[in-house]
């Protein structure tokens, strides 16, 4: 049975998260940590060789 709020599916019968309008800090942190755990890292170095950005990326296996 789907989980509904005001008649709208929030979690469907097929376990699809739906109609989420926003996320709170805890959820954001959780999602962010999940992405970090994938450990797909893109590092940006400046011309002096100093790492100035470390970007954790979602794994997109569909695209080699």
């Amino acid at each position: 049975m789907a989980l509904k709020i005001n008649g709208l599916d929030v979690v469907s019968d097929t376990y699809v998260l739906s109609n989420v309008a926003n996320t709170d800090v805890t959820t954001q942190t959780t999602i962010n940590s999940a992405i970090i755990n994938q450990n797909n890292i893109l590092r940006i170095y400046d011309s002096a060789g100093t790492e100035i950005r470390t970007l954790f990326c979602a794994n997109a296996t569909a695209q080699p």
Binding site: L42, R43, I44, Y45, A48, G49
Partner: peptide
Amino acid sequence: VNAGFRAMS
């Protein structure tokens, strides 16, 4: 592991 982009000097 540490691969990325670096700006040219």
